[in-house]
Write a protein that binds this DNA or RNA. Structure first.
Lengths: 159, 159
DNA sequence: CCCAGATAGTGGTATATGCCACTAATTGGA
DNA sequence: TCCAATTAGTGGCATATACCACTATCTGGG
């Protein structure tokens, strides 16, 4: 009788997910702010760090992100000297990415803050719940939405 | 042994959430594309629709979104004639929002597509799982991250 | 060896979002 | 009544992301 009387957005999986992402994103950004990095940037640095000088396409795939979007997102990090790119030796189309020494340092420094955010969040929702949620979210990120009537790699088209 | 050997981003609640949001967002956007609306815009139109000519601040709160971000997001919808704003009669600071007739029509039309997306998604993850997930995400959106040492509304300062 | 087709990135354009600095209104006293 | 504090939005600026049209390479036939 006081608040949510109407369906609101809570029925739309997409809207609900985005809303939570906005909220959590603000929280992480807030906690990370002393480092000067946004949550997204921290995640990107980390992903680069755990890879072996990954190619941009590889990173984009791992992060379930559009390649061009990755390129754009990378720019401020390159500009600020945390990341550098270089052309692959065997395939000049491929551009690989690595952290600079400052990028390494910044990543380590920011990881402290990240831990704080992570812990504070998990203290609120519970470690179990957080883990469960991450699994569910990873499942979504891995879903295959293709309908199928897109021609299964040529073939078919029988009679 | 084949793929994910390193921690990746799956440990960061924020990164995991964003990654899933990117994936799901693309799917919804894709399914809604015949309408010309993005998932976010559809959600916004819907939120306006279920409200009673809501004030911008009210919408921002319900969507857990920054007020200025809402203003920006609203612009294309106003430009395209789906939404209009007007000043509140009792408080001229307040700007209220409503759908135009075309906005109404567009919303209804797009709801068909939205249902498709919603159903296809839930067919993949299961209705139960989807509902559970939405509850968890709503919880996150409703969390109170405030630490407390922010001075409880002035006062204190005793010494 | 050469070209058609596939691959990997880049740049431009548009929306999504947030923060900050301001402006316009309101409100609550003194 | 008049001003300080509060409240609601706006605009500017920066990052996050996507899609599309291109460019630069590579690859696999002929």
């Amino acid at each position: 009788m006081s608040k949510t009387a109407l369906p609101g957005l809570s029925l739309c999986n997409n809207a609900t997910l985005r809303r939570a992402a906005r909220k959590l994103g603000r929280f992480y950004d807030d906690v990370l702010s002393p480092s000067g990095l946004k949550g997204t940037q921290y995640g990107l640095l980390y992903q680069i760090h755990v890879g072996s000088e990954p190619a941009m396409g590889t990173i984009a795939e791992e992060m379930v992100m559009d390649l061009s979007a990755l390129g754009h997102t990378l720019k401020p990090l390159i500009r600020d000297g945390y990341v550098e790119t270089f052309t692959d030796k065997d395939d000049r189309r491929v551009k690989r990415v690595r952290l600079t020494p400052q990028g390494q340092t910044k990543l380590e420094e920011t990881t402290q803050l990240w831990s704080t955010a992570q812990q504070r969040f998990e203290a609120l929702v519970g470690k179990e719940q957080a883990a469960t949620l991450r699994v569910a979210l990873d499942e979504i990120a891995a879903l295959d939405f293709e309908l199928g009537f897109e021609m299964p790699t040529a073939a078919a088209r029988s009679d």
